[in-house]
Amino acid sequence: MYERILHPTDGSTGSAHVTLQAIDLAEQYGATVHGVNVVDSDVSALLGSDSDTLEQQGKNAVKSVENMAKAHGVEVETEVLNGDPAETILDYAEEIDADIIVSGTHGRSGVKRQLLGSVAERLVRHASMPVMTVQLPETDVTVENSEQAKTIASEALEEQGYDAEITSVSRQLTVWVLDAETEDGTLLVYLDPETQRTSIID
């Protein structure tokens, strides 16, 4: 159903959640995620940023998409473009023959949120393909509590063929750490709170 998923991003707080929605679709359909950031020079003055700063932010934003997609084994391509965000995204969608656009939209007030919401609204109105909008949360963390971490780690262990029970869960600065018991001993599971990538050490 989907082969090419276009995911515009500006790297805003909470955008990891939107990226994961695009990645989830890509995993379901074996699709490629196309992460794109559009540098709008007209907005730089409004936000108090120069174009070089915005371009670097764009590179960082699509790099985050690339890292998350690769962590989930999803094919990914990224671009940083210049122009009017909505128009450029729509043109790029046509260029790559995108099957769907997965875009974040603002949840609260603020200049950046209003701009993002305006872009998402224009995409919905004018895109020739389906547009999925995802409300941006207030954080990039996608694994927010120990129960969620335990569930994800348990699923990862099962997928890797381990018959194991999680015995402890703790949150360190940048990672969840879980202990799991098997008949043969103890396993250590590291879980990235943003990408949800797990590493199992026996």
Rank of each mutant, 00 (worst) to 15 (best):
residue 166 I to K: 05
residue 106 H to K: 14
residue 137 P to S: 01
residue 142 T to K: 07
residue 146 S to I: 11
residue 169 V to W: 00
residue 165 E to K: 09
residue 151 T to P: 10
residue 162 Y to C: 03
residue 147 E to A: 15
residue 160 Q to P: 06
residue 110 G to C: 00
residue 113 R to W: 13
residue 144 E to F: 06
residue 147 E to I: 05
residue 163 D to Q: 09
residue 117 G to Q: 04
residue 160 Q to R: 11
residue 140 D to N: 05
residue 129 M to S: 11
residue 159 E to T: 15
residue 141 V to E: 15
residue 166 I to G: 00
residue 162 Y to W: 03
residue 134 V to L: 05
residue 128 S to H: 12
residue 143 V to F: 00
residue 119 V to S: 00
residue 156 A to D: 07
residue 124 V to E: 01
residue 128 S to C: 09
residue 115 L to F: 09
residue 147 E to W: 07
residue 132 M to Y: 10
residue 132 M to W: 11
residue 122 R to M: 05
residue 131 V to A: 01
residue 167 T to C: 06
residue 167 T to I: 06
residue 131 V to W: 04
residue 149 A to F: 01
residue 165 E to P: 08
residue 128 S to P: 08
residue 162 Y to L: 06
residue 123 L to K: 03
residue 121 E to Q: 12
residue 135 Q to M: 13
residue 144 E to K: 10
residue 138 E to H: 14
residue 125 R to C: 07
residue 140 D to E: 08
residue 107 G to F: 00
residue 149 A to I: 02
residue 119 V to F: 06
residue 146 S to E: 12
residue 129 M to V: 11
residue 147 E to T: 07
residue 104 G to W: 02
residue 169 V to P: 01
residue 119 V to R: 04
residue 154 S to G: 07
residue 142 T to Y: 02
residue 158 E to K: 13
residue 104 G to H: 01
residue 163 D to T: 10
residue 168 S to V: 11
residue 170 S to N: 15
residue 131 V to T: 02
residue 112 K to R: 14
residue 134 V to I: 02
residue 121 E to T: 07
residue 126 H to V: 12
residue 172 Q to I: 14
residue 125 R to F: 04
residue 170 S to T: 13
residue 139 T to V: 09
residue 145 N to S: 07
residue 122 R to A: 03
residue 110 G to L: 05
residue 161 G to H: 08
residue 133 T to L: 00
residue 143 V to K: 00
residue 107 G to K: 02
residue 157 L to C: 01
residue 156 A to I: 10
residue 135 Q to D: 11
residue 130 P to Y: 03
residue 121 E to D: 12
residue 117 G to R: 02
residue 167 T to P: 05
residue 167 T to G: 02
residue 104 G to M: 03
residue 161 G to S: 03
residue 124 V to S: 01
residue 109 S to F: 05
residue 109 S to W: 06
residue 116 L to P: 10
residue 164 A to K: 02
residue 155 E to I: 10
residue 157 L to M: 02
residue 163 D to S: 08
residue 164 A to D: 03
residue 165 E to A: 08
residue 122 R to P: 09
residue 117 G to H: 03
residue 140 D to G: 04
residue 161 G to W: 02
residue 147 E to L: 12
residue 171 R to W: 13
residue 122 R to K: 06
residue 116 L to I: 05
residue 112 K to D: 11
residue 139 T to E: 00
residue 146 S to Q: 15
residue 110 G to Y: 04
residue 122 R to Q: 12
residue 147 E to Y: 13
residue 146 S to H: 12
residue 106 H to F: 12
residue 156 A to R: 12
residue 107 G to I: 06
residue 144 E to W: 09
residue 148 Q to M: 14
residue 109 S to N: 13
residue 151 T to E: 15
residue 124 V to M: 05
residue 106 H to A: 15
residue 168 S to G: 09
residue 141 V to I: 14
residue 144 E to Y: 08
residue 149 A to R: 00
residue 158 E to T: 13
residue 131 V to M: 01
residue 126 H to I: 08
residue 111 V to C: 07
residue 132 M to C: 12
residue 132 M to R: 11
residue 171 R to E: 10
residue 124 V to C: 01
residue 118 S to T: 03
residue 150 K to H: 09
residue 144 E to N: 09
residue 149 A to G: 06
residue 155 E to D: 15
residue 171 R to C: 10
residue 129 M to Q: 07
